[in-house]
């Protein structure tokens, strides 16, 4: 190859590289733009609805005026409930899969099952919750039934994140602990699990977003069309933000009139999810600061 063709082929390669990096940059930019576009649109349309009354009062005048306080409280209960159900169950399952079970046919089948569960449409979870929790276990349409249904819905997310987090803990930590004559149980609970906690919290964050935003699973299991009173026990129905938005946008008598309220409710839902996530993120960074390796 003479010098000239070498140079031109270098130029062609350089060009190709530029093109490729350009494309990569563009896709990253597009995704960010889409996200900010949605947020800006909601903010622009919704911020006028946000008033003190909106946040602290129940809806009035057939839900065309007033606030969304019962729905905020309801979603908060349902989301926290779902996490309380899914986090312990998911973490324990992940511990079984990564620390205890012999890797083989059984763990493979469980993992396939978990992945399938992740792919099931959310309305199916809703119907399952209706059939099992609401009717069969006689919980009725309630916070308990809704939180359990949402808990199962986010279980695959939590298990997946917890498994990855546990696998990322260096094997040398486990060996060091076991070699000191510490039992497997104590090794898991005092060394492995604390080291995996940041990753597990990431899973919880993803779970919160999903649980707070789902409509179909709570439609039949927990959500009330309208109630001005706050729940007194976990066997009470609640209003919930996603369902409230659905109702206002599709089933109300004044759909166009309540548009600002709909956007306002969406904005509150996003803020609520962000708020819960923020708690988890702060916790995570605090733990990370203490556990560096």
């Amino acid at each position: 190859m003479n010098g000239k063709t070498f140079k031109s082929s270098m130029r062609a390669r350089y060009l190709k590289q530029k093109l490729f990096f350009g494309a990569v940059r563009l896709s990253a930019l597009l995704i960010t733009l889409a996200l900010f576009g949605i947020l800006a649109y909601i903010l622009a349309n919704g911020f006028r609805a946000i008033t003190w009354e909106f946040l602290t009062q129940p809806p009035t005048d057939s839900m065309t005026k007033g606030g969304i306080m019962p729905a905020i409280v309801g979603t908060l209960y349902l989301t926290v409930g779902a996490i309380l159900v899914a986090l312990p169950l998911g973490v324990v399952s992940a511990i079984f899969l990564t620390e205890y079970a012999k890797q083989g046919a059984l763990t493979r089948i469980i993992r396939i099952g978990v992945n399938c569960l992740a792919g099931v449409p959310s309305v199916v979870f809703g119907l399952f919750g209706l059939g099992f929790f609401v009717v069969f276990l006689k919980f009725g349409s309630s916070i308990l039934a809704g939180a359990l249904t949402l808990g199962i819905l986010i279980l695959p997310t939590i298990i997946g994140a917890a498994e990855e987090a546990l696998k990322a803990v260096p094997q040398t930590f486990r060996e060091a602990s076991l070699a000191l004559g510490v039992s497997k149980w104590n090794t898991i609970f005092r060394i492995t699990l604390p080291s995996a906690l940041p990753g597990i919290l990431t899973g919880a964050i993803l779970g919160v977003g999903r649980a707070a935003g789902e409509t179909a699973p709570i439609m039949f299991t927990a959500a009330a069309f309208f109630t001005a009173v706050l729940p007194k026990s976990i066997f009470d129905e609640v209003m919930a933000l996603p369902y409230h938005i659905y109702v206002l946008a599709t089933a109300g008598t004044h759909i166009e009139e309540t548009r600002p309220l709909q956007y306002g409710t969406v904005l509150v839902l996003i803020a609520l999810v962000l708020g819960i996530d923020l708690i988890a993120i702060v916790m995570r960074s605090m733990i990370r600061r203490n556990k560096r390796w």
Binding site: E175, G181, I191, W293
Partner: peptide, 19 residues
């Protein structure tokens, strides 16, 4: 084995203190 490892300790190739 836990009891055995309490009586027979081990030091590894790479230092592996806990965090």
């Amino acid at each position: 084995p836990v009891e055995i490892r309490q009586r027979i300790g081990m030091v590894f190739q790479k230092p592996n203190p806990f965090p």
